[in-house]
């Protein structure tokens, strides 16, 4: 489908990150929820602006990457920039903790059955 030389845009990934290939911070893994703290401003790098638009509501890093069409490593570098500038905050999903706090499925099933029998 994609012919060589017809890739979508002329800017290469190293220009997007300014030549960096690793992020300074470990704050972002694939499922970290990212929340934008400010609106995109004029003169901002377009990827940063896009991230801020996407992150108006909490969005996972992988989702941002797929929205931007960029590799996750690159997105993490970009997120690191924004994070360092204080424009986004990262929220780590606390799956184990919440799983512990959830009621036992068996109890819920019993409640359901009880309700159906009403």
């Amino acid at each position: 489908m994609k012919r060589p030389g017809r890739d979508d845009d002329p800017d290469r990934l190293y220009t997007v990150t300014g030549g960096r290939s690793r992020s300074e911070t470990d704050a972002f893994d694939l499922v970290t929820l990212v929340v934008g703290e400010c609106e995109p401003a004029a003169g901002m790098q377009s990827e940063h602006a896009s991230i801020l638009r996407i992150c108006r509501s909490p969005t996972a890093v992988v989702e941002i990457a797929s929205d931007l069409g960029l590799p996750v490593s690159i997105v993490r570098i970009l997120l690191g920039d924004l994070h360092a500038a204080g424009r986004i905050t990262a929220r780590h999903p606390r799956t184990p903790a919440t799983a512990d706090q959830l009621p036992d499925p068996e109890i819920l099933k019993q409640v359901l059955v009880g309700l159906r029998n009403l």
Binding site: G5, T17, S21, R22, P71, S73
Partner: peptide, 23 residues
């Protein structure tokens, strides 16, 4: 075509070392 290949590879390998070399 090499640039296109490299772009594909950059999407394929998420390892930072590999990505750095690819870049």
């Amino acid at each position: 075509s090499m640039a296109a290949d490299l772009r594909d590879l950059e999407h394929k390998y998420s390892d930072e070392e590999v990505l750095g070399d690819l870049l």
